[in-house]
Amino acid sequence: MTIRRVKIGDREGWDPLWKGYQNYYEVDLTETTENTWQRFMEPDANGPFCLVCEGESGELIGFTTYVFHAHTWHPEPRCYLVDLFTTSNLRGKGVGRALIEAVYEKADLHNCSQVYWLTQDFNEAGRKLYDKVAKLTPFVKYQR
């Protein structure tokens, strides 16, 4: 498998992954999909950025998105891994780990002090991986 930045010709392969992500989290992001895609094609210095995982036969089998941002606790920026999704039949096969490690590499190149992300508590498959590649924090999320 190959991890690389998403490109314009990937739209047909990315759309089903994006839909699968939405279905998994039971959300409808139809209204923002086109805007999100366009921002991937012309990201500013902070993103959002999108990496895709290409399978052996060239099909897209996963993606991740991330952004960089300033923070008050460190002079270096932080990296927020926004989205991560792999096709269901390949979960547990290293695709998610490879995508996370690719974001770690991008964050290191950007001199980030931290890479972090959120997930739903019901995401058992994801959390098994996350427990291996990162440290669970005690933070609780609030939102308006």
Rank of each mutant, 00 (worst) to 15 (best):
L29N: 12
G13R: 06
D15E: 15
I61P: 02
G9I: 02
T87H: 09
E56V: 11
R97I: 02
Q38P: 03
M41I: 14
K141V: 11
A134R: 04
L17I: 11
T2I: 14
W37R: 01
G94E: 11
Q114T: 14
V95A: 10
A45R: 09
T33S: 12
G47T: 03
K132W: 03
W117I: 07
R39D: 02
N35T: 15
G62K: 06
R4D: 05
E12M: 01
T65M: 08
T86M: 12
F139M: 06
R78V: 06
F63K: 08
R4W: 07
N111G: 14
A102N: 04
F68V: 05
R127W: 08
Y80V: 00
Y24H: 10
G94Q: 01
Q22E: 12
D15W: 13
L118E: 09
F68K: 07
V27M: 10
V103I: 03
A45C: 04
K132E: 15
H69F: 12
L60V: 13
D121M: 09
E31Y: 00
T33D: 08
T30E: 05
V103Q: 01
E59S: 12
T64F: 07
T86I: 02
E56M: 10
V95W: 05
I100Q: 05
E31Q: 07
Y104R: 08
E101C: 03
C50K: 03
W117R: 09
P43F: 05
Q120E: 15
E54D: 04
W117P: 00
H74D: 07
I8K: 07
F68W: 08
R11A: 11
I100R: 01
G96I: 06
L29M: 08
Q22F: 00
E12Y: 07
D108P: 02
L51T: 05
P16R: 04
P48M: 04
A107I: 14
